[in-house]
């Protein structure tokens, strides 16, 4: 149990560092919220090990800490909505054998952005809907890239099926 908790804490830290590095390198100025989403590779790692509770715990810890450290109450709502949506979508497709980590990640990225925009829709109003196509495409591309990275990590990291 103690080992599990420290592993999750470690993974949450890895997510935070990913998030911090990403915030230093803004990919585009015109559309807010476009980033690689490397943190998702940690969630993917746990999901592919069938550790759904762990993935959820690490994700929520990461979001709370990152909102406290770098964000605002609104960024908390946006991230939480995005993360929970993408986790749910990835869980649905986790057992589909013909979908690999890359496809799973692309799906997660897209759904993440859709849910984030949905939260923005309630906070900022209906005007944000014009960002939807850009965010869908960006989520798919960045999700696929993160998926490729995750697959490389999964190959290198030997966990013997558990942490």
């Amino acid at each position: 149990m103690a080992k599990k908790i420290s592993t999750y804490a470690l993974l949450a830290c890895v997510c935070l560092i990913f998030g911090y590095i990403e915030s230093l390198v803004p990919l585009t100025a015109a559309i807010p919220g476009i980033k690689l989403g490397l943190s998702n590779s940690v969630a993917l790692l746990l999901l592919t090990k069938r550790d759904i509770k762990g993935a959820l715990a690490v994700n929520i810890t990461r979001i709370l800490l990152s909102a406290l450290l770098f964000g605002s109450p609104f960024s908390l709502v946006f991230s939480l909505s995005g993360a929970l949506g993408s986790m749910a979508a990835m869980l649905l497709f986790l057992k589909v054998k013909s979908v690999s980590v890359v496809g799973l990640s692309a799906l997660g990225g897209t759904v993440h952005n859709i849910f984030q925009l949905l939260a923005a829709f309630f906070v900022l109003g209906s005007a944000v809907k014009y960002y939807l196509p850009f965010l869908i495409l960006a989520g798919g591309i960045s999700g696929a890239l993160t998926g490729i990275i995750s697959e490389l990590i999964l190959k290198k990291v030997k966990t013997n099926g558990k942490f």
């Binding site: 497709f93 979908v99 690999s100 890359v102 799906l107 897209t110 869908i136 798919g140």
Partner: peptide, 25 residues
């Protein structure tokens, strides 16, 4: 390794994105 389901996901995302883009413009 990419599998069949991956391509279906990619195509669906691309289709949805491009369709909405057209709708926007």
């Amino acid at each position: 390794m990419l599998k069949k389901g991956d391509y279906i996901i990619f195509l669906s995302i691309a289709f949805l994105g491009v369709a909405l883009l057209f709708f926007n413009f």
